[in-house]
Computed example of a mutant assay.
Amino acid sequence: MLLEIERLTKSFAGPEGPVEVLRGVELALDAGRTLALTGESGSGKSTLLHLVGGLDTADGGSIRIDGQEVTALDDAGRAALRRGTVGIVFQQFNLIPSLTVSANIAFQARLAGRHDPDRAARLAAALGLTDQLEKYPEQLSGGQQQRVAIARTLAARPRLVLADEPTGNLDEATSGAVLDQMLELVSETGAALLMVTHSQSLAARMERRLHLRRGRLE
């Protein structure tokens, strides 16, 4: 099992005391599999992805990725996990303003020691970015920046892709092309894909669907 989550809990401070966001979440996702995570706004979907990606720490429970206990890692260990094993597509683009589109796409793959210029070029073409490669992020629309962020994640060939509303800034046709590329990565490399989405059409293309309600998956 590539991803195993057991009894995961997370609370945040509120004006009247701690607010439970995740209440004993249990989830398993094998390599080569895809899972859509749905739920109302504020239900904890992004929080769950951030915990799995090592961007935040859980209050309790266990997260194992490829047998490695994420909750036991220090900051350096979690950063290494994101460089080599986990790729995250954020709602925010987080592109590097001083780098061109081409360099942004290659950035994560270079860190992971997996830069493949041919693959980067294929991703750019598939996502409609070939004519934008020498531009800088500030010269792009929001939708174009989102596609660059997605290409950057996929170019590094992560074992686990965490995607938080990856097509929120894209039209329906481009959204489909983006998901095609994610599913192609899963097929080619045996990666796993965990995607948070409000789109029922995208969720329907995933192998499994789970709904987060009141801090629990159902």
Results as ranks from 00 to 15, higher is better:
Phe12Glu: 00
Asn94Ile: 07
Leu111Glu: 03
Arg147His: 03
Gln139Tyr: 01
Gly143Glu: 14
Gly32Arg: 01
Gly128Asp: 08
Arg208Lys: 06
Leu170His: 09
Arg7Trp: 09
Ser11Lys: 05
Arg122Ser: 14
Ala106Asp: 08
Ala203Tyr: 04
Arg214His: 14
Leu73Gly: 00
Met206Lys: 02
Glu218Trp: 13
Gly32Ser: 06
Ser62Tyr: 02
Glu40Lys: 14
Ala120Pro: 01
Gln92Asp: 14
Ala203Phe: 01
Ser41Thr: 10
Gly24Met: 07
Glu40Pro: 09
Ala163Met: 06
Leu212Val: 09
Ala191Ser: 12
Asp171Ile: 11
Arg82Ile: 02
Gly113Arg: 00
Asp116Trp: 02
Val86Ile: 11
Leu95Pro: 07
Gln144Pro: 11
Leu133Phe: 10
Asp116Cys: 03
Pro166Cys: 10
Glu69Lys: 10
Gly17Pro: 07
Arg83Ile: 05
Gly87Phe: 04
Arg33Asp: 10
Leu99Gln: 10
Asn94Lys: 08
Arg78Val: 02
Ala151Gln: 06
Leu129Ser: 04
Ser43Cys: 06
Ile96Thr: 13
Ala126Lys: 03
Arg159Gly: 15
Leu127Glu: 03
Ile96Lys: 10
Ile150Thr: 08
Arg147Ala: 06
Ala192Gln: 06
Gln200His: 12
Thr153Cys: 15
Leu185Asp: 01
Ser201Thr: 15
Pro117Asp: 05
Ser98Leu: 13
Gly84His: 12
Leu194Gln: 06
Thr174Asn: 15
Arg110Phe: 08
Ala173Leu: 14
Phe12Tyr: 13
Ser141Gln: 07
Gly128Arg: 08
Leu210Trp: 07
Thr189Gly: 00
Ala204Glu: 11
Val52Ser: 04
Gln144His: 12
Ile88Trp: 15
Thr9Phe: 15
Glu172His: 11
Asp131Cys: 15
Leu99Tyr: 08
His211Tyr: 12
Leu81Cys: 10
Arg83Gly: 02
Leu212Asp: 04
Pro166Val: 11
Leu51Gly: 04
Phe93His: 09
Ile88Tyr: 15
Arg64Thr: 15
Ile96Ser: 11
Val148Glu: 08
Arg64Pro: 09
Leu48His: 00
Ser175Phe: 13
Ala109Ser: 07
Gly14Ile: 04
Asp56Tyr: 00
Arg216Ser: 10
Thr85Lys: 11
Asp56Leu: 06
Leu127Asn: 06
Arg7Glu: 13
Ala72Cys: 12
Val89Phe: 15
Ser62Met: 14
Arg214Ala: 15
Ala72Leu: 13
Leu95Lys: 08
Ala76Ile: 00
Pro97Ser: 05
Arg7Asp: 14
Ser43Met: 12
Pro97Val: 00
Val148Ile: 10
Val25Ile: 11
Leu160Phe: 04
Thr34Asp: 09
Gly44Met: 08
Glu165Trp: 00
Val101Glu: 06
Leu129Glu: 04
Val101Arg: 01
Ala79Ile: 00
Gln145Ser: 12
Val25Tyr: 03
Leu29Pro: 02
Leu217Tyr: 01
Ala125Asp: 13
Val19His: 00
Met206Asp: 08
Arg114Lys: 13
Leu99Pro: 11
Leu22Thr: 05
Glu4Ala: 15
